[in-house]
Design a protein around this nucleic acid. Structure first.
Lengths: 299, 299
DNA sequence: TGCCATTATAGTTTATTTTTATGATATTTG
DNA sequence: CAAATATCATAAAAATAAACTATAATGGCA
């Protein structure tokens, strides 16, 4: 039994396929198959049910996987502890970022982070919250930037900054002249939102106490805020945008932004990690970098 | 970084010597030295201070060792979990047994245990409590049979049986005709005990409220109860023997045994293991075997 | 300083792991 | 239903890693 065998086993369990797992482990499929076979022989049990597609662990496999996860975490912590002792921040970090944050935040901290920590290989994936949660469970992501409270309990959150909601409104809209807009003033039929899956959509609906699925005539499959804003302009409607997006708007777009009256109209943006995760020093560095970048941007 | 490297590192830390550690790992010294060197190179830190005799871990070494212990425990638990799932009790178990129990207990359970669990390789070491505690700390023993309450807190105890103290008295002694003997009747100068280090000595002294070191004319360096009993016979003195020893006495010796009056004149014999230790299924099997054997012996 | 014990290094052998090539099996699709 | 495709297993060769033997360097101690 070796660490590599455990890693291969976890990869197969995560990807549901020997071939794909081998790819991701940067070895050929026979190498991986052999190691899994050796592990099964040594333990005297079948760990994976190859008859199913995707390949799933047997009962024994699940037991071993649970222990293997602990072992691999403890193993990774060794290197982690040494790095921390040396004061080095190094390694790779796979980061998921939700689409309503990514375009407005990444450019703020990525360059300075990369410069400050040349030993860190940061891999950013723009993903919806649900995909992020799934990926973290399957150990395909080390951390993620999501809205606070939208993930499950076994993911711990560290607040990065608070993000206030604003109204982006078409000049043709009757409410355009208002200095600020109250939630009660918003006509749900005039509100264009991102398609389902974006957590900001749910947060806004909750804010408007429109818990049921909104079906406005303009409920297009808008994948980005930019698209939503263009659609707002074209239709005379409005939308709600996160404060983080304001910094990346053109002066003309900025003219169309109105503050939302009343408190509690904001979301917390957090750095989410699996509890008891190992790359603590990297995550600490990343968190500090982002907070600093956001503070600088506001100033 | 491999599991083997971590095992080698732990071995050197435990034995304080590359050569000895290599011996115990069943490899040659250069093999072990190479692996340690590779580990140090990969982590980029020196783990062992070779200038000291015995070799001691550096600060980085201590950090790595702490994590490595966790990793190796988690690693061992994988096999453990599989064995438990298969209902198999297999593996090796290094057991320490105190000298006042070993000669009277081992033959009771060892044969039936070996027969019932052919997959278990049991290695028994007769050792004093202090040596047992030290050996368990250094992971040279998996479990031990000791008197309850004589070990440190980080060792957990499971009671195996209660062992009542008796008086073994020379026929020449004035108290020989008594049916039972009270503690107060015992003349400390007539009491022969095992040499210091045997926990039973301390327990008896405490019983007799003779906390100070007893200095009878017969305070020889008696290493075994058998020797003490012969000395008792030769000098007309007496000693205190554990009940477990009665079963192995000759009929003539048995004649010289008197019960000790008053309660609380017994010790608990326990199976001690490091907390959070891994070989749970083996230890459970051993414990059950011993309890059964002791019960059978009394019947 | 020289001896003894201990660890490090070099070169060789052995063992293990990986790869390439290919075969077997199951699933999908025309 | 059969051909095509995808996926995992197996076999032999190549590459890599680990072990051994022999020997050199080092470090304490008389």
């Amino acid at each position: 039994m070796t660490i590599i065998q455990l890693e291969y086993l976890m990869a197969v369990a995560n990807y549901g396929s020997f071939t794909l797992a081998a790819d991701r482990c940067f070895v050929t499929q026979p190498s991986l198959s052999m190691q899994i076979k050796n592990l099964e022989e040594e333990l005297g049990v079948t760990l994976l049910d190859r008859s199913k597609k995707p390949v799933i662990p047997t009962e024994a496999g699940r037991v071993v996987l649970a222990r293997a996860t602990e072992t691999l975490n403890a193993f990774a912590r060794i290197r982690e502890a040494v790095n921390e002792m040396k004061g080095e921040v190094a390694g790779s970090l796979r980061l998921g970022v939700i689409p309503t944050v990514a375009p407005y935040l990444l450019h703020l901290f990525l360059p300075s982070f990369a410069q400050q920590y040349p030993g860190v290989q940061l891999e950013v994936h723009e993903m919806l919250t649900s995909d992020i949660v799934e990926a973290m469970k399957r150990d395909l992501l080390d951390a993620a930037i999501i809205a606070g409270g939208t993930g499950p309990n076994d993911i711990s959150e560290e607040e990065l900054f608070s993000d206030t909601f604003h109204v982006y409104i078409s000049p043709q809209n009757p409410l355009y002249e208002r200095v600020n807009i109250r939630i009660e003033d918003i006509d749900p039929d005039q509100l264009i939102l991102l398609f389902e899956g974006h957590c900001i959509r749910d947060q806004i609906l909750e804010l408007c106490q429109q818990v049921q699925t909104l079906r406005s005539p303009y409920s297009f499959e808008c994948g980005s805020l930019e698209t939503v804003m263009r659609l707002v302009d074209a239709t005379g409607a409005m939308t709600i945008v996160p404060g983080i997006a304001l910094g990346s708007m053109t002066p003309a777009q900025r003219e169309q932004v109105r503050p939302l009256a009343r408190g509690a109209t904001s979301r917390k943006i957090v750095l989410a990690t699996r509890r008891a995760y190992v790359k603590q020093s990297l995550i600490k560095a990343l968190s500090a970098s982002i907070k600093e970048a956001v503070a600088d941007d506001l100033a």
